[in-house]
């Protein structure tokens, strides 16, 4: 059970983030999670949206390079140690986390949502389910 993440290539110069978000806004896309990995010259903006296909189309139409990848959205309790326990589950299953960030996908008070990009989605999903973690599906995502 994974969700789609969009990655967009963004040059490090004024106005580029404005242009990306404007393109998404015009298409009526809601951004549910965002993270930027940056280097000296460019960044990769990673986003989770309510309608991935529509978002990709809107970005390409505006000349951006974007691609989609499957990531895991896992619900964690908003309390000390819950992130540590998720990391431990993945570590024990020999899963490597390439990057992660937090999402604005709190279904209820007292919970948080983590977006995880791992080296093996299938094994990670299995390990997290075995440990009774709550994962969000693509369908649920569009309904939140």
């Amino acid at each position: 059970m994974t969700v789609k993440q969009l990655s967009v290539f963004v040059e490090n110069r004024p106005g580029r983030l404005s242009a990306v978000t404007e393109a998404l806004a015009s298409a009526g896309i809601n951004i549910r999670a965002v993270s930027i990995a940056d280097t000296k010259d460019f960044g990769i903006m990673r986003i989770i949206v309510n309608d991935t296909d529509k978002a990709i189309a809107a970005l390409k139409e505006n000349g951006f390079i974007a691609s989609a990848a499957n990531v895991i959205a896992v619900i964690a309790d908003d309390k000390p140690g819950s992130m540590a326990s998720i990391m431990k589950i993945l570590y024990n299953a020999n899963i490597s986390v390439e990057y992660m960030y937090a999402a604005f996908l709190n279904r209820e008070k007292g919970s948080a949502c983590l977006i995880l990009r791992v080296d093996n989605n299938e094994n990670a999903v299995e390990a997290l389910k075995d440990a009774d973690c709550t994962l969000i599906s693509e369908k649920e995502l569009s309904e939140i």
Binding site: F9, A37, F42, I44, R46, A69, E98, R117
Partner: peptide
């Protein structure tokens, strides 16, 4: 100019 083929969602690959 970066193209779809060249793009990856990880910094490592692009570097």
């Amino acid at each position: 100019e970066i193209s779809d083929d060249m793009f990856s969602d990880t910094i490592k690959d692009i570097s």
